[in-house]
Design a protein around this nucleic acid. Sequence first.
DNA 1: GAGCACTGC
Length: 718
Amino acid sequence: MAQGGLNISSGSHRPNGKFSKDSTKVDSFSRRQKILQHRKSLPIASVERRLIEEVRNNDILIIVGETGSGKTTQLPQFLFNAGFSRDGTIIGVTQPRRVAAVTVAKRVAEECGVEVGQKVGYSIRFEDVTSSSTRIKYMTDGLLLREALLDPYLSRYSVIIVDEAHERTVHTDVLLGLLKNVQIARSKSFNYHLDNESKKAKNGMLVEKEKDPQSISFLKECQGKKFPPLKLIIMSASLDARIFSEYFGGARAVHIQGRQFPVDIFYTYHAEPDYLDAALITIFQIHMEEGPGDILVFLTGQEEIESVERLVKERLQKLPENNRKLVIFPIFSSLPSEQQMRVFAPIQAGFRKVILATNIAETSVTIPGIKYVIDPGFVKARTYDPNKGLESLVVVPISKAQALQRSGRAGREGPGKCFRLYPEFEFEKLEDSTKPEIKRCNLSNVILQLKAMGVDDIIGFDFIDKPSRSAIVKSLEQLYLLGALTDECKLSDPVGCQMARLPLDPVYSKALVLASEFKCLEEMLITVAMLSVESIFYAPREKLEEARTAMKCFSSPEGDHQTLINVYRASDEFLEKRKLGLGQEKIDKILRKWCKENFINSRSLRHARDVHSQIREHVEQMGLRLESCGDDMLQFRRCLAASFFLNAAIKQHEGTYRAFSTGQVVQIHPSSVLFRTKPDCIVFNELVQTNHKYVRNITRIDYLWLTELAPQYYAMQS
DNA sequence: GAGCACTGC
């Protein structure tokens, strides 16, 4: 867990007092001493030499590092000191999450006694803190994938460390497949040159003998260029090293001890019919009977969290005054960050925190002070049905690995206890690990990226876990219908190439390409930026009415797309009037205030603005015309219809809709501005199954536009 | 009448 890096810093706490010049010096000296001491005390420190030897002797190494081993912060420094980044090459370390990349890089820069961005830097979307002198670079795995589009051999890197590989995000899985190929190609290019200098005749053999078609395509380009071999290190926190080792042809795996306090696990005797009630009882049992220490409860979503919060508060009122020293903190991703941060603030002495969390607290956020974990054993997970294009959010049992991860949250600072609200035999029945994301998501983007990197045979691509054939075929079909692929299933030029360059869902990339023809690129740019982020509107339960009124100011009778544009433009207008002469921090501050007044999630809007400026640069570079359709909303809606024709639906009796492409019966999501209007024909962006099949982000269109604008699809249908 | 978690040159 990269949070090893996060937690390390809590060990060397710096008092917030004032220092005179001298004491600052002393402080920084003693701080450096402390860092050194800390580094030496990490479990990984004692095996530095051995690890370096292993890396020298093996081009691929699997490292199983338990929580708290220090692998994420220390190994790159060991490699640097051992000379692995000679000749200006870089040691790259990938992380699945932005926060981890940033915090670990900052920590390592401090340990090295340098400014972050110099020898040690990080690069994440929207934020590149590296320079020509950067030798240890932390980054998100998705970002390295994007880099591979420009530099398929990742030629600047001498070592790439893939951290948290056990999480098996789509990005990690695709990256592993790619790195496997890059490594083969680079070592061959190297050997090719060696061979070439002695015996020139040999080079043809290498190509012919190679079985892996991807490597052949890489190798072809590789000829004439010489790359030093690439060292690959896969780091995983779980014990499934076997999977990675087998994938990399029996690669060597080493194990590094962690430093984690023991956590006692308790199970219930019987299955609990109502886990919320069981959680409630357990909270109070711990509160009344156990020693000091905060409680972390894993729940599946906002609704559960809010209802447990209410129940705890009610029950608390029935307790005697001196037993009421319990403070509740909800935390989930869509909660505004100010409210998320509350969980970290110290509370009055003698009080106990109860943190009600979604699985945001499993890996993304590390909350200090947790001694007790309550784990009902469920998670709300997204699954994807490629045939129906249907996403579902369903509550499912967690995996053993997840249960382990959750209980580990109690042992960060001292011995802890974990209460699993199910019997032990139920635990035994759980899956070992969570299904890799690549087996349960829409593959269109992955395929587009691979095609752009010259991987044409997707079904034959060497994934660590192959997605189902039907999922691949379905996505290929979608890309073909969007015009990104030719009849021969190759990336089309220019449309497919343009789409691959944009860091967006392929459907949104296509919408931009079309919008430049429809002369409404300005509007579409705002739309796809807003659609690419989490929900823009924020409606807390207690202020639902106010939030609704606020939303009305922006809402458009045409639909949600125009509504999102209205929000974006309103925020822009508000800023334009005030931002003159203000620094970025002040601008952020007044924008947050505006968001709060208008019940807008400021994190989402901020994100959308970042996406907007990034994509604008891309489309300008691509030479697309950034025009506005002005008041001609008809033009814009026609463009939406042309772009999202695969997601069109027509009204049936009783206000339900039938999706053209799959025939599914769907309903308009209650958050849509068209929820009450129920127009005859719509296009939508998302189809999600919760209690019903809901479509979200909707615009009303004319049915006839579909046959006119997407005849390749609708001529056959009608 | 309702939103798990991440992420992108």
